[in-house]
């Protein structure tokens, strides 16, 4: 029988050439007696966007909160396992969590600019906390951050206006600019478009794709099409377990696991 495979797509998830920026090893997390994550082993490739998908309560947000040590801020929470950033365990005893949160920034579901601060001050806030003072250097960082967040042209004449005076989509990009200002290596995004309209969503999606040039991005999303559009790799979580991880095109075209197939096609009963 003659039947030659003509698959031309390479599964990047299995390619060893891509450098791993972050990695979890047997990561398990609890909230009190409730186990939120079970033995998660997953890698996040450098300068790539990884989407984490799964039904509500599957542990998506908990997973990314473990990646910058925010999980431990919740009373009653605990975890086991390892999270490596450039091969170093971010939970090692001598590691300062504040430094980790600076290296691994976070953007949340709802835009949350500091309500009493101007647009400028919102972007500069994190830097000031680390000792930066107003001046040319800070001005340049604010400008660069707003440019990278594709917001500069829209707010450059209104930098002194309150951060909450701009639209929801602009506020979310302001929050991204605030995260970028600290020059993180990884940006975590927890459903960053769920509160935005389609046009603002499209802008954030474009931004996410452009950000991977300089950063490693991990995004939690409930929107399957968004995961398919913006990510290079997709991880599917279900009941706290990693069911499937792979090249996004492969996951959405020909998932290996039946659970993934059922979830992404909406066949979950």
């Amino acid at each position: 029988m003659i039947s030659k495979s003509v698959n031309t797509r390479k599964d990047n998830a299995e390619s060893s050439s891509s450098e791993v920026k972050m990695q979890t090893i047997s990561l398990t997390a609890w909230f009190g007696a409730k186990q939120a994550l079970k033995d998660i082993n997953v890698s996040f490739k450098t300068n790539a966007v990884t989407a984490i998908i799964g039904p509500s309560g599957c542990g998506k947000s908990t997973l990314i909160r473990c990646l910058n040590r925010m999980h431990e801020l919740v009373p009653g929470s605990r975890f086991s396992g390892q999270v490596l950033l450039d091969g170093e365990d971010i939970y090692a005893p001598d590691v300062d969590p504040v430094i980790i949160r600076r290296r691994v920034g976070m953007v949340f579901q709802k835009p949350n600019p500091f309500p009493t601060m101007s647009i400028y001050d919102n972007v500069a806030a994190g830097l000031r906390l680390t000792g930066a003072k107003r001046g040319t250097s800070l001005d340049e960082t604010v400008k660069r951050s707003l440019e990278q967040a594709t917001l500069w042209d829209e707010v450059k004449d209104d930098l002194k206006k309150p951060g909450t005076s701009i639209s929801g989509g602009q506020q979310q990009r302001l929050c991204i600019a605030r995260a970028i200002a600290l020059q993180p290596e990884v940006i975590l995004m927890d459903e960053p478009c769920s509160a935005l309209d389609p046009i603002a969503t499209a802008k954030i999606e474009e931004l996410i794709v452009s950000l991977k040039t300089d950063y490693t991005v991990v995004i939690v999303t409930h929107n399957m099409q968004q995961a398919a559009r913006v990510s290079d790799f997709t991880a599917f979580l279900y009941l706290g377990q990693l069911v499937e991880y792979g090249d996004t095109e492969m996951v959405f075209e020909n998932p290996k696991n039946e659970l993934t197939e059922k979830y992404i096609t909406g066949k979950f009963g």
Binding site: A228, F252, E253, N254, P255, E261, I264, T265
Partner: peptide
Amino acid sequence: YQPVASDLR
């Protein structure tokens, strides 16, 4: 419906 996986195939 923006179908994926087996639906899209």
